[in-house]
Design a binder for these strands. Structure first.
Lengths: 133, 133
DNA sequence: GCTTGAACCTGTAGTCGCTACAGGTTCCAT
DNA sequence: ATGGAACCTGTAGCGACTACAGGTTCAAGC
């Protein structure tokens, strides 16, 4: 049963020391045992948990949903459907955000092109910003 | 020269009262004159400025860049090229964010599909979350 | 002129997910 | 025994608002 420090856990899990402490503070990571001097001591389970959290964050899940995902995982029973619903809901939000950003990119791109054409005396980008929704 | 209250400015410009006060606090909106009793009094210029800010925010520009855009607009000289550079830089960030989100959406979509197929005893989404980067 | 109550005022704290200190202690290799 | 890297706690800051609390002013109706 190998044991390691918070710095090593950070390295293994691809996160940062402060982030791990933050997750502990908000109750996402369990409080680990300590050395006599008060340093945190971690094991493989903590590493697994941290990787799970990091991966979930990479997929854009907010902390509270990761908390829920962890609960579902620990229940071990058929929470799969529940997980799927959560993931699909999240997917919906991600796609909606993509749409928003795509609309932004299009306007930016179009107005910047106008700029390049140089057909106007005034700046087309500033003009676009002054116009109705 | 029509004058109006902060609530009316919020309605006209499509923003909120608190947001307008916030913009004033951080120096993005000029301090307006006040009534004897201390209520803010706005005119068309404030409305124009608020619309400019709101539109810029809709396009995703951060506050500090909006501050710069306003400066450029007020200079009135040929700041167009500078504006264009700022817009293109921002466009780059937006596109990069779209890529990130698209990658997230793809993973979410694929794993949720696996789920639907039901070929695994364990939840494929939770499995995906437990896996390396 | 008086009374309501909606809209306004200031100031502060909370949101999310970290990140960055400051000021101190512990660990471990030499 | 010593030095310095890594750890500890606690707090403040980021961006862009939002949401109070507790008070004051305005304007419409009687």
């Amino acid at each position: 049963m190998q044991a390691f420090s918070i710095g090593e856990l950070a390295a293994k899990s691809g996160s940062k020391v402060e982030t791990i402490r933050y997750y502990e503070r908000i109750g996402l990571m369990a409080e680990p045992p300590r050395t006599a001097g008060g340093h945190r001591v971690y094991g493989p389970k903590h590493n697994k948990r941290m990787r799970f959290i990091r991966r979930s964050r990479e997929l854009g899940f907010p902390i509270e949903e990761i908390r829920a995902l962890i609960d579902m995982e620990e229940r071990e029973d058929g929470a799969c459907e529940e997980v799927r619903l959560l993931a699909l809901e999240h997917l919906g939000r991600v796609r909606s955000r993509i749409q928003d950003l795509t609309a932004m990119a299009q306007v930016l791109c179009e107005t910047a092109d106008h700029c390049a054409e140089g057909g106007s005396t005034r700046c087309p980008i500033l003009d676009a910003l002054s116009v109705e929704s």
